[in-house]
């Protein structure tokens, strides 16, 4: 008997918090897949550090979502007992690690956004979200610095690393637009001063990303088609596999304490 999925009352604030929690968990999980397999020991340490930061953010955000929801869900139920259609993360963060260039470009695109986002969220009228933002901003500033440095090294390194970095940018670019989307659920929270309007961060994000990409002697893609769906549970095929691994024990041993 497998443990069934839970139901979640997705009020606007619960949904909003879950979306950010899912981003952090899924990206943290992806980074943790590198553990023991990185190109050098120093980078094994760094990737694990970033994964730990993100998993820590996810735990706080899930706990907050559970508290706001006010039923008997908790961080583990929210992480381990929702299926792929209930997950609300960005498509970007669920993309497979690929080679080191893919992982770093994915990290760079996300961290450049997260750093701006958490800094703005420090002014949220939701005191818990503001506190989580204050901690997460420090972490994402490091993630951004680390991934920027790698982007420049890879872009301006060898012919091979340049090619791989450019390919990663082309591949992942279409998943960046989703970070700036706002739906009706979020609009209300933005108006109430609880959430920040990500659309307002886009110009600054483009400036940071464009600057680093130029320094790395790389190019921004000309294609501006953007893929969407993660926020409403329409994911790429990759997420289901990730979740079946992540959730395997909780699903196989219903109700067990670990």
């Amino acid at each position: 008997m497998a443990a069934p999925s839970i139901t979640v009352s997705e009020t606007p604030l619960v949904l909003y918090t879950l979306r950010r929690a899912d981003d952090a968990l899924i990206l943290g999980h992806r980074l943790s897949e590198w553990c023991g397999h990185a190109p050098m020991l120093e980078e094994d340490m760094a990737l694990a550090n970033m994964a730990l930061d993100l998993l820590g953010q996810a735990r706080e955000l899930y706990s907050h979502a559970a508290k706001v929801e006010g039923r008997d869900n908790d961080e583990d139920k929210l992480a381990y007992l929702r299926d792929v259609r209930q997950y609300r993360n960005l498509l970007l963060v669920e993309q497979p690690n690929g080679d080191f260039a893919r992982t770093m470009v994915r990290q760079f695109f996300y961290a450049a956004f997260a750093d701006l986002y958490w800094r703005a969220m420090m002014k949220s009228k939701d005191a818990t979200l503001a506190a989580i933002a204050a901690k997460s901003e420090k972490e994402s500033a490091y993630h951004l610095r680390h991934s920027c440095e790698w982007l420049v090294r890879l872009g301006d390194g060898t012919e091979e690393s340049h090619g791989r970095a450019q390919e990663a940018i082309e591949h992942l670019w279409a998943y960046t637009g989703e970070m700036f989307e706002v739906d009706d659920t979020e609009r209300g929270l933005i108006d109430a001063g609880i959430a920040v309007d990500p659309a307002g961060l886009k110009a600054q994000w483009l400036k940071i990303v464009g600057g680093v990409i130029a320094e790395a002697t790389l190019e921004l893609p000309s294609n501006d088609w953007m893929q969407q769906g993660g926020r409403i549970g329409r994911h790429s095929e990759h997420l289901g596999h990730l979740l079946s691994e992540l959730q395997s024990l909780q699903r196989s041993f219903p109700g067990a304490t670990w």
């Binding site: 968990l25 999980h29 943790s32 897949e33 553990c35 694990a48 994964a51 730990l52 998993l55 820590g56 996810a58 735990r59 899930y62 961080e75 583990d76 992480a79 381990y80 691994e245 992540l246 395997s248 024990l249 909780q250 041993f253 067990a256 670990w258």
Partner: peptide, 14 residues
């Protein structure tokens, strides 16, 4: 690491 049964266990193992 990718199959740790709770988030606390996952963080501790990583």
């Amino acid at each position: 690491i990718t199959r740790a049964p709770t988030l606390r266990r996952k963080v501790a193992l990583l």
